[in-house]
C-alpha cells in the first residue's frame, strides 16, 4: 500500500506540474488573453484535484468493488455541490481556474507514447476494419445523442 501510494504521488506530481504550467500557457494563448493565470495562481486548484485523486485511488484500493472513477466522482461532487456551503464556493472557484483542456493534454501526450506499442498490430488492419471501427464510434455517439435530444426536448430542458 505504501509502495503504491509513493507511485501514485510521484505520477500525480509529474502530471500536475505539467498542468500547472500548461494552464498558464493555455490562458496566455486563448481568445481571452487578458485573463491569464500565473503558475502560482493555478496551484490551489491543482492541489485540490491532486488530493481528490489520491483519496479516490486509496478508497478504490481499500474497496475495489467500486471503480476509482466512481470514488473520484463522489468526492468531487460532495466537495463542490452548492448544498455544501463550507467547501463548495472555494473548491468551485479554485478548480474553475484550471481548464478542462490543459488537464487532458498531458494525459494524451503519454497516451500517444503508450499506443506506440500497438502500432505493429494496427498496421495489419486493413481499410475495411478501420471504416467499421469508425462507424462503431459514430453509431454509439449519434445513438446516445439522439435519445438524449428526444428526452431533453420532452422534459422541456432544451
Amino acid at each position: 500500500m505504501l509502495e503504491k501510494f509513493k507511485e501514485w504521488l510521484l505520477i500525480l506530481c509529474i502530471s500536475c506540474t505539467i498542468v500547472i504550467f500548461g494552464n498558464t500557457v493555455n490562458t496566455l494563448t486563448d481568445a481571452n488573453k487578458e485573463a491569464w493565470l500565473s503558475p502560482l495562481a493555478n496551484i490551489p486548484g491543482v492541489l485540490i484535484l491532486l488530493i481528490i485523486s489520491l483519496i479516490g485511488l486509496i478508497l478504490a484500493e481499500l474497496i475495489p468493488q467500486v471503480h476509482v472513477s466512481i470514488w473520484i466522482t463522489l468526492i468531487g461532487v460532495l466537495l463542490a455541490m452548492p448544498y455544501n456551503t463550507v467547501t463548495g464556493p472555494f473548491v468551485a472557484a479554485e478548480v474553475g481556474k484550471i481548464g478542462l483542456l490543459p488537464l487532458a493534454t498531458p494525459i494524451l501526450a503519454y497516451a500517444g507514447v503508450s499506443i506506440g506499442k500497438d502500432w505493429i498490430e494496427f498496421k495489419k488492419i486493413g481499410w475495411r476494419g478501420i471504416i467499421v471501427a469508425f462507424l462503431v464510434m459514430v453509431g454509439t455517439y449519434i445513438g446516445s445523442a439522439i435519445i438524449a435530444q428526444l428526452i431533453l426536448k420532452a422534459q422541456g430542458i432544451i
Partner: peptide
C-alpha cells in the same frame, strides 16, 4: 496514464458537483 487521468476525472467531478 491510468493514474494521471485521475486529476482530469476530479475536475469533471467538481464541475458535476457545481
Amino acid at each position: 496514464v491510468i493514474i494521471a487521468i485521475a486529476p482530469f476525472l476530479a475536475k469533471v467531478a467538481v464541475t458535476t458537483g457545481t
